[in-house]
Design a protein around this nucleic acid. Structure first.
Length: 574
RNA sequence: CGGAGAGUAGCGCAGCCUGGUCAGCGCGCAGCGUUCGGGACGCUGAGGUCGCCGGUUCGAAUCCGGCCUCUCCGACCA
């Protein structure tokens, strides 16, 4: 008897909305008894939620196995020394949970596992004959997020599948990268997710090529730019659009004008009667190479990710303290400009084409008008630094870009040799020369998938599980558990279903029918078999589909119900 | 880290301004009875150091100070 009786199960549902939750998936995961909060960003998975989590895990595992990745287990507790060798003890910074053992040795709770796996590779891989190799694990990750949010969506402890591949060549890496891409797509599809794959920034991971798998959802934290015509799709942080046309103004000589108290772009536009596209904003950044100035047009926004990527310095940060700015630039905050600055100047490409720009005067109460890039101030490099907007022309085909929101459920990277070089993971090639292994890494937020699935599959009554990851296939509310006949039949049905490989949850609780119906909707399993007097009188049971409420009647005997339910479930699966 | 808000029973909340039968309500929970196809009803009952520490006061959930935690917006982020 492997089916589950609700009365003997831990599945506490809530009628009221939890005050702490904001988005549907978070509310529903609490209300339907999947998770409970222990502390900010730390959750318990109750039995019902854990069933779903394990099913997601199984799908991911199957897809990884199918491309020849080898499952293994890496430690959560990782020595500081390893992280120092790649420089990420600092780069990851306060986002890592750090601790000290009794002897004073530093450790981190692994936020990811490149260091430990590359160190493993350095020991175990020595020849080109050992390659390529792909290893993966499914385990807890720890990140001290600045702001945990939305339940399991941004948690401090979460379940992740992480894979790492090792190669002798970039071609080999690309092959595995493509296999991963496809395997990821299949895994998300099987989980019932609607996915957009987008070009992605590489952040603290390093490397060049990267894609993110975004579950499309209004409540997603990430923004993606999609071309309506050519299929270009990218994370907004790196999305490229064609440079906009320059403002139509005449070239003119440089002139310093008095602008008392006028600091912001809006104030300048008002005070000088110019258009925002003529104004140039100046920001100060400091990184490993010292301070620099960054220019963007007044009607544009600086996309910091693009800047970081272009400069290649993860420690780069914006200076926004007025005193610090004045110390670096020698000019007051609000009146900064590139003219006469003694630090390197980078600029967005749209700045180059402004014939006569308004820039800060580097003196309290003054701005320059008629400034011409190249003539009046030097720019070291022009880059695409501008944050794309809805409707911008696609960088490839010129069609308007759309901005949508998504939940990042997976990301894959072509890392190259960043980690293998730092940690000495090399191999001897056919010609006897020693080379660093070329690496890729690949992550899936397993627990986040659950949130994303619910975000995409719910209605105002509750969750609507896709069959493949539903914690149970059917729920059987026994309307009158006190009536022996109904109870007996329900048990026989549940047992028969279980024997046929379908998971049944028998609601034998002493509750009113209304409550059982509501709970069945809330927990969202795909099918409900109603065992009640009305249909029984006709020798039938009623099957209701969660997705659309469609009802079918089946003869009230185990064989017919097993057949009928099997058919209905088959029709539901992808 | 900046801004805002909140911590009173398992959940959702009132009470606080104006200190003294204010330890309260709804849901949930336990017992008994009635009910039973779309969140039933009656009766009885259990359950709370009012986030923590300190102060003011004859007296503090309520006033003052400090701390902690949680949530939201922003910044940040595989």
């Amino acid at each position: 008897m492997a089916y589950v009786k609700w009365s003997r199960y831990l599945l506490p549902t809530w009628k009221e909305e939890p005050a702490e939750a904001e988005i549907p998936s978070h509310k529903l995961m609490l209300r339907a008894g999947l998770i409970r909060k222990v502390a900010s960003g730390i959750y318990e998975f109750l039995p019902f939620g854990y069933r779903a989590l394990r099913k997601v895990e199984r799908i991911v595992r199957e897809e990884m196995d199918s491309i020849g990745a080898l499952e293994m287990k890496l430690p959560v507790l990782q020595p500081e020394e390893l992280w120092r060798r790649t420089g990420r003890w600092e780069d990851f910074g306060p986002e890592m949970f750090k601790l000290t053992d009794r002897k004073g040795q530093g450790f981190a709770l692994g936020p990811t596992h490149e260091e430990i796996i590359t160190e493993l590779a350095s020991r175990e891989i020595s020849s080109w004959r050992d390659l390529p190799l792909t290893l993966y694990q499914i385990g807890e990750k720890y990140r001290d997020e600045i702001r945990p949010r939305f339940g399991v969506m941004r948690a401090r402890e979460f379940l992740m599948k992480d894979a790492y591949s090792f190669h002798t060549s970039w071609e080999s890496l690309e092959e595995t990268y493509n296999d991963m891409y496809k395997a990821y797509y299949r895994a998300f599809l099987r989980c019932g997710l609607k996915i957009k794959v987008v070009e992605a920034p590489t952040g603290v991971m390093g490397g060049n090529v990267s894609h993110e798998f975004m579950a499309v959802a209004e409540t997603g934290e990430d923004e993606i730019a999609l071309c309506s015509s050519c299929g270009y799709a990218a994370n907004r942080q790196i999305a490229h659009a064609r440079p906009p046309s320059p403002p139509r103004v005449e070239e003119r000589p440089l002139e310093l004008v008095e602008t008392p108290g006028v600091r912001t772009v809006e104030e300048l536009v008002e005070f000088l009667g110019v258009s925002p596209s003529q104004v140039v904003k100046t920001f100060i950044y400091v990184g490993r190479g010292g301070p620099m100035a960054v220019l963007v047009r007044g009607d544009h926004e600086l996309e910091e990710t693009k800047l970081l990527q272009a400069v290649g310095d993860p420690t780069l940060r914006r200076v926004d303290d007025p005193d610090e700015v004045e110390g670096i630039a020698g000019a007051p905050f609000g009146f900064l400009g590139p003219i006469g600055l003694r630090i390197p100047v980078l600029a967005d490409e749209a700045v180059r084409d402004i014939p006569a720009a308004v820039v800060g005067g580097n003196r309290e109460g003054y701005h320059y008008v008629g400034a011409k890039p190249g003539r009046d101030f030097a720019v070291e490099r022009y880059l695409d630094l501008r944050r794309v907007q809805e409707g911008d022309p696609c960088g490839h085909c010129g069609a308007p870009l759309r901005i949508r929101r998504g939940i990042e459920v997976g990301q894959i990277f072509q890392l190259g040799t960043k980690y293998s070089e730092a940690l000495g993971a090399t191999f001897l090639d056919r010609d006897g020369s020693e080379k660093p292994v070329i690496m890729g890494c690949y992550g899936i937020g397993v627990s986040r998938i659950l949130g994303a699935v619910i975000e995409q599959h719910h209605d105002d009554q509750g969750i609507i599980w896709p069959v493949e990851i539903a914690p149970f296939h059917v729920v059987i509310p026994v309307l009158r558990p006190d009536m022996g006949e109904q109870m007996e039949l329900s048990e026989r049905l549940a047992e028969a279903l279980d024997g046929a490989g379908m998971e049944a949850l028998l609601d034998d609780r002493d509750r009113s029918p209304g409550e059982k119906f509501h709970d069945a909707k809330l927990i969202g399993v795909p099918l409900m078999i109603v065992v009640g007097p009305r249909a029984l009188k006709r020798g039938e049971v009623e099957v209701e589909r969660r997705r659309d409420g469609a009802k079918t009647s089946l003869p009230a005997d185990p064989a017919s119900v097993v057949e009928g339910v099997r058919e209905l479930l088959r029709a539901e699966s992808i």
